[in-house]
């Protein structure tokens, strides 16, 4: 399906690009949030990623999936923004995460479970948040995650293992007490 729309865009039907925006915007957004931890920045990142994808569509090699290629652009863009933008929220993680999480939970501004879960996920380091989203939300294989992130397979597995452990730890220590 993606290839049909790629051909359409390349033949000059610019509006056909809407298909890609519609299909991948939310997952792209999830990946960007998992890295940058800020919805507003994440939206900008996804926009920039779509523009880059559009401009680079001509050079896209059909041997890879469009999805993986686009997610790679989002991931690179987000990490680049994380490195360069000092204003972006730089959360420090596990060592002080419990304290921060408690703060989030006791504030309980939205009073919704989803918000609490999101707060927990925002406590994870960018790489761990990213790998969890790719593996559990998008059901991407370890092999494809390695391609998207540029990490080795063993490194991906280590990060994924650590991410699961950290998520459980934060969840068990904090969320359960507040329910």
């Amino acid at each position: 399906m993606d290839n049909i729309y790629i051909d359409k865009v390349l033949s000059g039907d610019v509006d056909a690009f809407r298909y890609f925006v519609k299909t991948y915007k939310d997952m792209g957004f999830n990946l960007a949030v998992s890295i940058i931890k800020d919805e507003q920045y994440a939206e900008e990142i996804v926009q920039d990623a779509f523009m880059k994808a559009f401009k680079g569509l001509k050079s896209f090699k059909r041997t890879a999936k469009f999805k993986s290629w686009f997610y790679r652009i989002v991931v690179n863009e987000a990490f680049q923004r994380l490195r360069s933008n000092k204003k972006a929220p730089q959360l420090s993680y596990l060592e002080d995460s419990n304290e921060k999480l408690l703060e989030y939970l006791t504030e309980d501004v939205h009073g919704e479970r989803t918000e609490k879960i999101r707060s927990v996920l925002k406590m994870l380091p960018p790489k761990e948040g990213l790998v969890l989203n790719l593996f559990y939300l998008e059901e991407t294989s370890i092999k494809d995650i390695s391609k998207i992130t540029g990490w080795t397979r063993s490194n991906t597995k280590v990060i994924l293992h650590r991410a699961r452990k950290h998520t459980r730890l934060i969840w068990q220590k904090n969320i359960k007490n507040h329910e």
Binding site: D26, F29, N30, A42, T114, I117, L132, Y136, L137
Partner: peptide
């Protein structure tokens, strides 16, 4: 399953 559920529930959409 547990992590899957958490990630699914924390899913964002624009």
């Amino acid at each position: 399953e547990f992590i899957s559920e958490i990630i699914e529930k924390g899913r964002y959409s624009i």
